[in-house]
């Protein structure tokens, strides 16, 4: 849940990047980190295994600027995508304001994508959230690879409700900020509605 501090005039929101193992969640955050001015970001924390797989979470705090005199901060988290880290994924979803689902566009990862969306839905329900009601966007990542499915095919399985969707290549950064902006926008508009 966002934290609104009238005393220090700050609003903090939490965004979680979800998706199957190796789909590129950590790479998304790394790109955002690299491209953000030093004064607008904090340290990026990665709790990872020796082989760079996310173990607990990545964390990147962004302080992008002010809206109507309120400092607006976004805390970006990734979950560990590997199936057996489910307990950790549940913890990271606590207090989430918006979710980015990062799909791996490669044909052979389709089953893993589908399983991960289902897992997201279930874990959100456990926390008292409904995936169809919270700010949510989908990113089709790894569009640079040869063995990928078409966006139509991906959409049919992964985005039946037509939330905002983006094609991306997280390694080059294509689509990364578009995705982030879209979920941030949904969150702030949700706040506006006073949810």
């Amino acid at each position: 849940m966002s934290f609104i501090n009238y005393a220090s005039r700050e609003i903090n929101c939490k965004i979680v990047y979800y998706g199957p193992g190796l789909c590129g969640k950590t790479t998304n955050l790394q790109f955002v980190y690299q491209k953000t001015a030093p004064d607008a970001k904090g340290k990026m924390i990665s709790l990872a295994t020796e082989t760079e797989r996310t173990l607990f979470f990545d964390f990147l705090p962004l302080a992008l600027g002010e809206i109507r005199g309120f400092k607006t901060r976004f805390h970006l988290y990734t979950v560990p995508g590997q199936v057996f880290y489910d307990a950790s994924r549940k913890l990271i979803l606590k207090g989430v304001d918006g979710v980015v689902f990062v799909a791996d566009s490669q044909e052979e990862r389709m089953d893993a994508n589908v399983e991960s969306v289902e897992n997201l839905r279930i874990n959100l329900i456990e926390q008292g959230y409904d995936l169809d009601k919270i700010p949510y966007v989908v990113q089709y990542n790894k569009r640079d690879l040869p063995n990928i499915l078409s966006v139509e095919e991906l959409r049919r399985e992964l985005n039946p409700t037509n939330v905002p969707e983006f094609e991306a290549c997280a390694t080059t950064g294509e689509g990364v900020f578009e995705t982030l902006k879209a979920v941030a926008k949904l969150i702030l508009f949700d706040l506006k509605k006073g949810k």
Partner: peptide, 18 residues
Amino acid sequence: DSEFPFAEITDDDIDNLF
């Protein structure tokens, strides 16, 4: 009775953040 500042927020406000 909320003094919430975001009631007037626009698309441009958000674009400017980025």
